[in-house]
Simulated assay, not measured.
Amino acid sequence: MGNAPHTSYHDDPSVDELVNETIGRVADKWTLLIIESLEEGGTRRFSELGRTLPGISQKMLTQTLRQMEREGLVVRTAYPEVPPRVEYSLTDMGRDLAEAFCGVWQWAERNIVQIEQARAHYDRRQARK
């Protein structure tokens, strides 16, 4: 790197807006858990995907998958069968995002004891107030 010029997109307001908007959409709990489920299990049917996500409602699963499809993270494949079969899989971009978030999980695993200690310390301080 040294003295090499650094290209920054921070100076472009349209890029900043896109990054902020995209992070807001993809960094929510359900999106991350859906990505994890599809990364670990590969292509899944809607109902199978829902079973891997305890606590998600059918409505929230539908909304999240639609948003992920819009963002280019998943592909929805509907088969003309009776009953209808719909499957979801990660796109290359979705797999890239899964890889990026893998670092967050690894960080959490490495730091879980410290995080729990910090939370307990904070909660004790708040209880004394």
Rank of each mutant, 00 (worst) to 15 (best):
Q117N: 08
Q114Y: 03
A4H: 05
Q114L: 05
D12A: 00
P84R: 02
A4I: 06
E99I: 10
W105T: 14
T7C: 01
E17T: 03
V75E: 09
V19F: 12
K129M: 11
S8F: 03
Y79C: 03
V82M: 07
A4W: 08
R76N: 15
Y9V: 10
R45V: 05
D92Q: 12
E17F: 01
R70Q: 08
K59H: 01
E21C: 05
P54N: 05
C102H: 15
D96H: 14
A27H: 11
V113L: 14
L90D: 01
I34Y: 13
T7Y: 15
A118T: 08
P54S: 11
L73I: 11
S89I: 01
N3I: 01
N20Y: 12
S57Q: 15
V86K: 06
F101G: 01
E36C: 07
K29M: 09
M1G: 08
R125H: 01
P84Q: 12
E48Q: 04
E39C: 00
D16V: 02
D123E: 14
G50N: 03
H121C: 10
C102I: 00
D16F: 00
R76W: 07
D123C: 13
T52I: 03
R125P: 07
P84I: 07
M60F: 02
Y122K: 11
A27K: 09
I112D: 06
G24L: 06
